[in-house]
Design a protein around this nucleic acid. Structure first.
Lengths: 115, 115
DNA sequence: ATTCAGTATGTTTTTAAATGAATACTGATA
DNA sequence: TATCAGTATTCATTTAAAAACATACTGAAT
């Protein structure tokens, strides 16, 4: 006999650092869009987010990582742009790996919830 | 050689139901305070939360659980009050158990993060 | 030295969420 | 049947986060 309602466990994962939340799925999406578009401006547009906000997130990430995740290019042809550093690329991979493991565990461990 | 910065994984766990988020740590605290104080009013005060908000959270929980988590007593001596049902008591226990398992796993699986 | 698109930064406006305030309802008890 | 404290509900206010707006700054390329 099945239960009348279905419940599932959801999990949000983020990386914490001394001063608080450092890297969650939002910043990861931003990194991915910077990689894809080559600039903070276009990444922000892609995500329908204000440039100012995107820029602040990048600042925060760069200052709180041991080495910057995003390299910003000022002026020059096309006005400049932004690209991921090696550390930035690695951050994406590490985050998704950690998140995947935890979410898989969470699903596996929580069948048949009842409330 | 130690890294200059420490990073840790944080995890937020909640229970999802057809219509969205159903039960997270905030509602669990509310349940605990209702248990402790015997009313929504006093639970809300305890948590420095508006009564209105607390009352709405209780409504939501009760409607979306298979059976109510909180029994509300109207009128009478002392004006009434609120107490947890069996299902409410169980919800607290189940939530913490699930949360504990997932958080322990998350810690164990993520040593030596570097960014 | 002008152009150009993106970065950098401060200020104002919007917006959604939470709070606060006000009022009616409930029912055991004295 | 008057009281009383908590539940139930509406409406106005506050507040904090995000967005929108405005304006410099940068430097390769022409």
């Amino acid at each position: 006999m099945a239960d009348s309602k279905k419940y599932s466990v959801e999990v949000r994962v983020w990386i914490e650092e001394a001063e608080g939340a450092f890297l969650g799925i939002g910043k990861i999406w931003l990194l991915e869009n910077i990689k894809k578009t080559g600039s903070i401006t276009n990444a922000a547009k892609e995500m329908k987010m204000a440039y100012r906000q995107a820029w602040q997130l990048v600042e925060e990430m760069n200052q709180r990582a041991e080495s910057p995740l995003v390299e910003k290019l000022l002026g020059g042809k096309g006005g400049g742009g932004a690209k991921l550093t090696e550390a930035g690329e690695r951050a994406i991979a590490v985050f998704y790996e950690v998140e995947k493991r935890i979410k898989e565990f969470a699903q596996k461990e929580t069948q048949n919830l009842k409330f």
